[in-house]
């Protein structure tokens, strides 16, 4: 049975599909989260150096991964929608942005919560935390631009250009911040040497990352339904009030 996948490229066909599958991803997310938290908080041993505080990495690191991963996925969908004029990909980019911004915020919050016990300061100008902060500004910029443009077609394309330019700049920003950090800070505070990675901890983080991923898919599919419905409603409604002049 040859499935014509392209029919799902049309928003109207993708809408019911998204509706059917997004609840399942909530379930997967919950299961993985339970497993991940169990490993992170019950199985993983105490770190000889940081005591119990290090358990925050089971939230911080997956959230940081997700924030960067979702930005790249958003940039991919936005530029796809811009280049090939496929409206569904631009709608996906619109749906991804808020979740990505939330994970960036979580990474920043948990990063500072972890920084306080380890280095005595809520905010540490570490290369990765600073790049995370800049990534947060990029997300806010993307959402602010799309909110400021009423015409959805222009908003999609403008978002596409901005996300593409942003994605090209993310590595540049990361390396310049990393260089800036090593110059000023020297290597006294070095987040890169993570606590000795017992394999059990790695498993904990991977499970939490997968759980966050499932959660993102569920939220994004649900939000894309809202975006499609909202646009379809405006389109259908506007047609009724055509200027019947002649």
């Amino acid at each position: 049975m040859q499935v014509n996948w392209f029919k799902y490229a049309a928003p109207a066909n993708f809408f019911p599909l998204a509706g059917k599958i997004y609840p399942w991803f909530y379930v997967f997310a919950a299961l993985l989260a339970v497993a991940g938290m169990y490993i992170g908080f019950f199985v993983a041993p105490t770190d000889f150096q940081q005591g119990e505080a290090y358990r925050i990495i089971f939230i911080h690191v997956p959230a940081a991964w997700m924030s960067m991963f979702l930005y790249l996925v958003m940039a991919f969908y936005a530029s796809l929608g811009f280049i090939f004029n496929t409206r569904l990909s631009s709608m996906m980019a619109r749906a991804i942005a808020p979740t990505g911004a939330m994970f960036t915020f979580l990474a920043l919050w948990t990063g500072s919560m972890w920084g306080r016990p380890m280095w005595g300061a809520y905010w540490v100008w570490d290369a990765r935390l600073t790049s995370e902060l800049i990534l947060f500004f990029l997300y806010i910029g993307f959402m602010a631009l799309q909110a400021a443009i009423d015409d959805p077609r222009r908003g999609d394309k403008a978002g596409g250009v901005l996300a593409l330019v942003g994605a090209i700049n993310v590595p540049i920003i990361y390396f310049s911040v990393k260089w800036w950090n090593t110059l000023h800070q020297g290597s006294s505070i070095n987040l890169t040497r993570a606590p000795s990675m017992a394999s059990i901890m790695l498993w904990g983080m991977l499970l939490m990352a997968l759980s966050f991923w499932m959660y993102s898919i569920a939220v994004i599919l649900s939000r894309v339904q809202c975006v499609i419905a909202e646009r379809e409603r405006r389109a259908a409604w506007l047609q009724h009030i055509e200027p019947h002049t002649t």
């Binding site: 806010i140 910029g141 330019v165 911040v177």
Partner: peptide, 8 residues
Amino acid sequence: LLVLPLNI
């Protein structure tokens, strides 16, 4: 808001 992060 759009341009400052890119100028860092």
